[in-house]
Computed example of a mutant assay.
Amino acid sequence: MTEQTETVPEARDIVLEARGVSKHFRVRRNTGDVLARRHRAVHAVDDVSLKLRRGTVTALVGESGSGKSTVARLLAQLYPLTGGEIHLEGRAVKAGRGRSFRRYVRQVQLIFQDPFASLNPVHTVRYHLSRSLKIHGRAGSGEADLEAGLVALLERVQLTPPQRFLDKFPHELSGGQRQRVAIARALGADPQVLLADEPVSMLDVSIRLGVLNLLKDLKDRLHLAILYITHDIASARYFADSTLVMYAGRIVEGGDSETVTQRPAHPYTQLLIASAPDPDRVVAPEEQQETGSGEPPSLIAPPAGCRFHPRCPKAMERCRTELPPRFDLEGGQWAACWLYDSATVTKEAAAK
């Protein structure tokens, strides 16, 4: 396993970084056993590290319940950390509210999955966007400045003419239009980072591409760092520059999106690729069995060793007892899997 060092320009490009971030949720039980309540917790996220760079999209991929949305909420400081650190532009971020929190959210904005739930149904588009501009000090000095700011936000998310949308309520908009309003509200803070939590999963298939193209255009024009959270690994290949694969609270593979999606290294990533619909792919029954089966483990009592080993068709004895570190592969790709430790593979083969 080799350690890669970053050049100075690459380090400067990092806007937001998570270092060994963990989040455990205490389990509340209707029982008089105080010790049971104290020690039982959901290990939603364990030792997650990632870097978001200016002008790039990083995809975080995994099935439901893997901890992807929890990572986004940790980066948005909606949840306190159980462990680890978050760094914004190289400086550690301290948990809290008040002015420091407001400065942080100006630079790091979260776009939620369901635009209808994230917009107040009793207020108009004008209210939502005006509030964003005012809170973050970008409303100008008068009504004319505010109106110009509202028009600019709607034009930026391609809702034109702006006057057609400003006085509409969320229920009067389509799903795609609501999500564009939610994106415009996030842009009202003039952020450097967008955390997009499955931004197109609640939309009709016919309009998903338009929203993804909008985010891609914003990334290029505003030089944003975007975290794109999705369960659709195929869209990660299209939209993201790099992809991280998450399973049961841990990141198990990473690299540039083309490599991860075309040459997946971790058995779980291979399972995700095999599960994606592809009308041109013909898979023999025996090959389907090799991708793994079963359900994700309980995160209250996660399995020892690699968390994927109960489902992994290539699991070895060491996988059941020891957590695999990150093994660097060719082209910047890496995988947390004992299959890439030659000593482990040799020992397993000799035992057979």
Rank of each mutant, 00 (worst) to 15 (best):
M202C: 03
R250D: 12
D13W: 00
I111Y: 10
R320N: 06
T259I: 04
K314I: 04
T230E: 02
E286S: 14
R138K: 10
L154T: 06
D341I: 06
Y104M: 01
L214I: 11
Q158C: 05
V151M: 03
L74N: 02
G175L: 08
P285H: 14
R237V: 02
C312A: 07
V260P: 04
G140Q: 06
I183E: 07
L60D: 09
T5I: 12
R131E: 15
V34Y: 01
F116E: 05
G210L: 01
A343S: 15
Q289T: 11
P115Y: 13
G188M: 02
R106N: 13
P80A: 03
P115A: 13
N30R: 14
L88S: 13
A248Y: 04
R178Q: 07
G83C: 06
P199N: 08
L35N: 10
L88R: 08
D256W: 10
A95S: 08
L159A: 03
Q177E: 14
D197P: 12
V61S: 11
W338N: 09
W334G: 09
R185A: 07
D197W: 14
P115R: 00
A92R: 15
L329T: 09
R326C: 04
R281C: 13
E155K: 14
P199C: 08
N120D: 15
G84H: 07
D46F: 06
T321M: 06
S257Q: 10
L214P: 12
I273H: 00
G331D: 08
P303S: 03
T82S: 15
S69D: 02
L272T: 10
D328S: 09
P324W: 05
A95T: 12
T346D: 15
L224D: 05
D328P: 00
A117W: 11
V252E: 05
G137F: 13
G292W: 03
G176K: 06
E89C: 08
F116W: 01
K134R: 15
L78Q: 15
D220T: 11
P279I: 01
M316G: 04
E85K: 10
V260I: 14
A265C: 05
P277Q: 15
L222N: 02
R102Y: 13
S141Q: 05
I135N: 04
A248I: 08
N213I: 02
L146K: 07
R320I: 03
P296E: 11
A315M: 06
A336D: 02
V181F: 08
N30G: 02
S235Y: 02
L203V: 05
V8C: 00
F116Y: 14
D13F: 00
F327S: 06
F169S: 04
R208P: 01
Y228P: 07
R178C: 13
L159G: 07
S275K: 04
V125W: 12
Q192S: 13
V71R: 01
V71S: 00
R38P: 02
S242A: 14
D47E: 04
L154S: 10
F25M: 03
S242R: 14
R185P: 08
Q288V: 14
R307Q: 11
I135G: 05
L329D: 11
G175R: 07
I86C: 13
G83A: 15
A44M: 04
P324N: 10
P170Q: 08
L60W: 01
A301V: 10
V181Q: 00
